[in-house]
Design a protein around this nucleic acid. Structure first.
Length: 564
DNA sequence: GCCGTTTTCGGCCCGACTGTTTTCAGTCG
């Protein structure tokens, strides 16, 4: 059993309670308890008394203790007896919350998504008080969409949709100013939809003009304050909302819709403790509404520094010294990239020049090792050749330290793809798993252990192998890997590729790990991925000193030379 | 169910929108 199991249990209880029309504050207490456990840095074995944690009192503690001791929960078992599981799925239908679902269940005896769809089509739902024909049609349509459209899109897809929308906005002259808000602005791993805050000279004209864009598939709602559409590309479709605001309210509205929800709750608590009230229209203080010319001045009003959107998650960020948290300005080098020697698109020289253009002080060339045939991995003779080429380039580019390296495969049986004799010829070695993802956790951990314990392996690249939204990755015991990394002085990577972001923010938060963030670039343009990796570190409120890419040129040289 | 330097009761973030009503409940962000 892990912490995650307890979090899932508490959240499941909250959901079932919600559907039993339990006191909403009780439901929220279970959710808060789950969140409290999630943001606590300790593992299950390190927590001896849950009841000392914030948000966990006598009641929730009893539930946890029973679950840890017996693997069961009487509270959940009883809830499950009174609430059919099908109702939980129905919560995913937009516009249907616990009360409406309970009514549908009680009055019509419906307990599944399929049953509800049928009831809508046979017009039984609209006979219920509080339900009308329109609601019935909307539910029916929403169920169809739920069955065909994924719930959330990975950040890579979100970026692509953003680009499409913003290319249109940039060409429209009635647009004064806009920003994406929501999870898109916070660079979350996945997002459900896109939210824009927008100031326009004429909302009606904007709406008319925007709706002519070829990617608009459907208009969901249009009004004076809001336009809501579905847009599509070759693969997917997504909801996009525009909120029309005046210049005066722009930044409080932007802050409000950037979220996260937990961040907003925390900000409102802070306001309330000062006798003020935050809404999207401003800060109400002594009966007056105060607005701001920037988000920074909004935060300053509460005695806080500007908190970047990427850090606005749990609420913990308002109690954090933001100046210590890692930022793009701190990035002095990229330690993981490929060239034409293996499966990259550019030469060593081109990658060097691209890194210099980024202002980096150091870089490491890390092509694949010999066993990764699909990526044209390097046999020893070609690796020696690359080492010589890199040495030759150093004099030509004194502004940057170019280190030799490899992204070495950790083979199926835990052996490493190069001998120590080969590895000692390199400045820096990172190791990664690229094969046999279906092994058991024990087998995978054996491989990772073998890499961590090797004296030449400095860091483990993309430690779980996951691809957001498409591949779960291989089974890793994260607590064990974290301990192994600490014990052996091995650094773990946050891979900045927006398909990976591996390790994820939730894993590294409060982990106490030494980390590195790298783009794994296979193209000079991929070096730009760094901002997604840094955003992931910021979500976890990781300090500069815990990220080796922030080292000065000299400190990094010492770090490389000193070895493990 | 949790919490507390206005503390053991009475709060728990706040406002808009939708669809349904005839003054509002439920849901959402």
């Amino acid at each position: 059993m892990t912490k995650k199991d307890i979090i899932v249990l508490l959240e499941t209880i909250a959901t079932y309670m919600e559907l039993s029309l339990e006191n909403p504050f009780k439901v929220s207490a279970y959710r808060k308890a789950a969140a409290s456990i999630e943001t606590d840095g300790r593992s299950l074995s390190e927590i001896d008394d849950f009841s000392t944690m914030k948000g966990i009192g006598k009641g929730v503690n009893e539930v946890i203790v029973e679950y840890v001791d017996t693997g069961r929960s009487t509270v959940l078992d009883e809830l499950k007896e009174s609430v059919p599981e099908g109702l939980v799925r129905m919560l995913k239908i937009p516009m249907l919350g616990p009360k409406k679902i309970a009514k549908i269940h009680k009055e019509l005896g419906i307990a599944s998504m399929e049953g509800l769809k049928e009831a809508c089509d046979s017009k039984r739902v609209s006979t219920l008080p509080g339900f009308g024909v329109k609601t019935e049609q909307n539910i029916s349509k929403a169920i169809d969409e739920l069955l065909t459209r994924p719930e959330r899109y990975p950040i890579e897809r979100i970026i692509s949709f953003r680009t499409a929308v913003e290319n249109v906005l940039d060409e429209m002259e009635m647009v004064e100013k806009y920003d994406v808000a929501g999870s898109g602005r916070r660079f979350k791993e996945t997002s459900r939809d896109l939210d824009y805050i927008i100031e326009v000279t004429d909302a009606a004209a904007f709406t008319e003009s925007f709706l002519e864009s070829p990617f608009v598939r459907e208009t969901v709602a249009k009004g004076e304050k809001k336009l809501s559409v579905v847009i599509e590309d070759d693969m997917d479709e997504i909801n996009v909302d525009f909120r029309f605001v005046t210049s005066r309210e722009y930044f409080t509205t932007l802050h409000h819709f950037t979220g996260s929800k937990d961040h907003n709750v925390k900000m409102r608590q802070i306001a309330k403790s000062r006798g003020e009230k935050i809404s999207e229209y401003g800060v109400e203080s002594n009966g007056e509404i105060k607005t701001f010319g920037s988000e920074e001045s909004f935060f300053n009003h509460f005695g806080l520094p500007f908190i970047p959107p990427t850090m606005r998650e749990s609420g913990e960020e308002t109690d954090t010294d933001i100046s210590k948290i890692v930022s793009m300005d701190d990035m002095k080098g990229d330690l993981h990239m490929h060239t034409v020697y293996s499966d990259g698109a550019f030469s060593v020289r081109e990658m060097v020049e691209a890194c210099i253009a980024k202002g980096y002080k150091y870089m490491i060339i890390t092509d694949h090792s010999k066993s990764l045939r699909v990526a044209n991995g390097l046999y020893e003779n070609r690796l020696y050749k690359q080492i010589e080429e890199i040495k030759g380039l150093r004099d030509e580019y004194p502004e940057i330290d170019i280190y030799t390296g490899t992204e070495m495969d950790i083979l199926k049986d835990g052996t490493l793809d190069y001998s120590d004799d080969m590895l000692k010829e390199l400045d820096y070695v990172l190791a990664a798993i690229h094969s046999s993802f279906t092994q058991t956790e024990a087998e995978i951990m054996h491989r990772l252990k073998s890499a961590c314990e090797n004296p030449y392996v400095r860091h483990i690249a993309h430690p779980t192998g996951r691809l957001i939204g498409s591949r779960a990755g291989y089974p890793v015991n994260m607590q064990e890997l974290i301990s192994m990394a600490k014990d052996t002085g091995t650094v773990l990577e946050v891979n900045a590729n927006p398909r990976r972001l591996d390790l994820s923010a939730d894993v590294i938060r409060h982990s106490g790990l030494k980390l590195t963030v790298n783009t794994d670039a296979h193209h000079t343009a991929h070096l730009d991925f760094m901002e997604y990796g840094v955003a992931t570190l910021q979500k976890a409120l990781i300090q500069k000193e815990d990220v080796i890419n922030t080292f000065s040129r000299e400190d990094f040289r010492n770090f490389v030379n000193k070895g493990k």
